[in-house]
Design a protein around this nucleic acid. Sequence first.
DNA 1: TCCATATTTCGATGATTATCGAATCATGGA
DNA 2: TCCATGATTCGATAATCATCGAAATATGGA
Lengths: 114, 114
Amino acid sequence: MESETVVRALSALAQEHRLSLFRLLVQAGPDGLAAGAIAEALGVPASSLSFHLAQLTNAGLIAQRRDGRSLIYSADYGAMNALLGFLMENCCGGAMCAPAAPCDTKDKNERTAA
Amino acid sequence: MESETVVRALSALAQEHRLSLFRLLVQAGPDGLAAGAIAEALGVPASSLSFHLAQLTNAGLIAQRRDGRSLIYSADYGAMNALLGFLMENCCGGAMCAPAAPCDTKDKNERTAA
DNA sequence: TCCATATTTCGATGATTATCGAATCATGGA
DNA sequence: TCCATGATTCGATAATCATCGAAATATGGA
């Protein structure tokens, strides 16, 4: 994982609305949520939300798919796990450390080739 | 953990120099590194580095201690683990998830009451 | 085709951020 | 006390970011 990618991902998460948004999707699971539902849940104007969704998508943290008129967004657990792993790489010089993989990524979430 | 704290921590990490700096300290372990050694390792002017160190300290991600004329900085593993845990809280609606604690925090690193 | 709904793009504005040299502060030794 | 060293603060500048209404785009149904 490249450090530029990681910076983009961290920048994406380093904002109140996007952090709430990402956590909402993490908790929603692989089924995800429609943009409208997210806007309502967060109380953010549609155009603002769209901006934030684009940031997270561009950072590779969430995925988009269409369902009729709605666009459904869902968290990319693989990307997230890669991010956490990068941050703790070679933790403490290699001693007493393990890879961070808090969420099983292989179930129904194989959209991306993370 | 408050979301404002998390945003501050993520903002602190969302910058090339600070990300490198934090990872350097993570890999250096609890002994940490002096500001001067960090500046040399990263090739950043002292005043710039000082700015970045202040950001990470303010975010609670690193700790500072004095050793003679040098200020030694070290990663706060407890804060980091709390951050990772927050991001993945209630992952997938509670199913197939575990707390993220990639690094054992109880060894020689009990400076902070994380 | 025409309309309603779902969402994104555009454009302007205000706010926050990174940078680095010069000046300042703190510590330890002579 | 005086000096050298390690590190931070100050100040100015350039760049990036968040916000939101209005306009534009895409989809599905009548």
